[in-house]
């Protein structure tokens, strides 16, 4: 694990895999959208409006998955002082925040026709909004503290404490009475949808995942390059020592 997480090796391997990930992202989006609009049937109660779930569910899933990555990478960086872990956590944050914003936006566009309101202070919706603010806070720590080692340490603490909110999001629909429906996919007794509806949802989750991996690789590459730029600037500033 430590061997593969070497920055130079990461740059080399990512250059090989990136075109494959990009191709897979396009393929999964094309097939997912085809299933979502042409093969998945209309819902007998919600009509066509239910098709918002094909973007809302993957966005909400990625918002929480992204935070999970930040928390794990932060813990690795905090405990083992791994050079790539903090960078991976930092690179994930803007993407996670984007997916959280998307989940909130598509959720409110679902809420209006289904519940009659764009927003309600429901446990699931509120905990997702809290997640968005945690993402913003995490990014603010990195941007405002100049000493990168100190920023990494404080950001890691924020990330590890914030994971509690992801647990709250997951179980909010079980712990409280909410307007938001219970889990559809991640259930002990299996998914509550099937057939082409399930295939479309799985394909779209796959597409969002591959998109996330592709964008994350670009961001990690950028942060690694930025470290090299900083090192060379110091070298040049010192007249090559």
């Amino acid at each position: 694990m430590h061997k593969f997480a070497n920055p130079a090796r990461f740059m080399r391997l990512s250059k090989i895999f990136l075109p494959w990930f990009m191709g897979l992202t396009i393929l999964l989006f094309a097939s997912g959208l085809y299933y979502a609009f042409f093969l998945a049937p209309e819902d007998y109660q919600m009509g066509n409006t239910y098709r918002i779930i094909y973007i809302h569910v993957p966005a909400a899933y990625m918002a929480q998955f992204g935070y999970g990555i930040i928390a794990v990478a932060s813990a690795v960086g905090f405990i083992w002082k791994h050079p790539l872990a903090d960078q991976a956590a930092r690179a994930t944050a803007p993407l996670g925040a984007g997916f959280t914003a998307l989940a909130l936006l598509t959720g409110s566009l679902w809420g209006k026709p289904m519940w009659g309101t764009y927003w309600i202070w429901d446990a699931r919706l509120t905990s997702m909004l809290v997640l968005f603010f945690i993402y913003l806070g995490y990014m603010a720590v990195w941007e405002t503290i100049e000493d990168q080692a100190k920023a990494a340490k404080i950001a890691a603490i924020v990330a590890m404490v914030g994971i509690i909110n992801v647990v709250i999001i997951k179980f909010s629909v079980d712990w409280w009475n909410t307007l938001h429906q219970p889990a559809t996919l991640m259930r002990l007794d299996g998914p509550t949808i099937g057939g082409d509806m399930l295939t479309a949802l799985i394909l779209m989750i796959g597409a969002f995942n591959m998109f996330f991996v592709t964008a994350l690789i670009w961001r990690i590459q950028s942060l690694i390059l930025r470290r090299r730029v900083r090192a060379i600037r110091i070298q040049l500033g010192g007249g090559l020592g």
Binding site: H56, L102, T106, L109, A215, Q221, S222
Partner: peptide, 28 residues
């Protein structure tokens, strides 16, 4: 609502992809 959701998603995904790619290109 369906149209707005899909358009908003497309816009956000394009912004995320472009900003990630451009950031890497600038650093390169």
């Amino acid at each position: 609502y369906i149209l707005s959701s899909y358009v908003a998603t497309a816009v956000v995904l394009v912004i995320m992809a472009l900003s990630s790619w451009r950031s890497k290109k600038n650093d390169e």
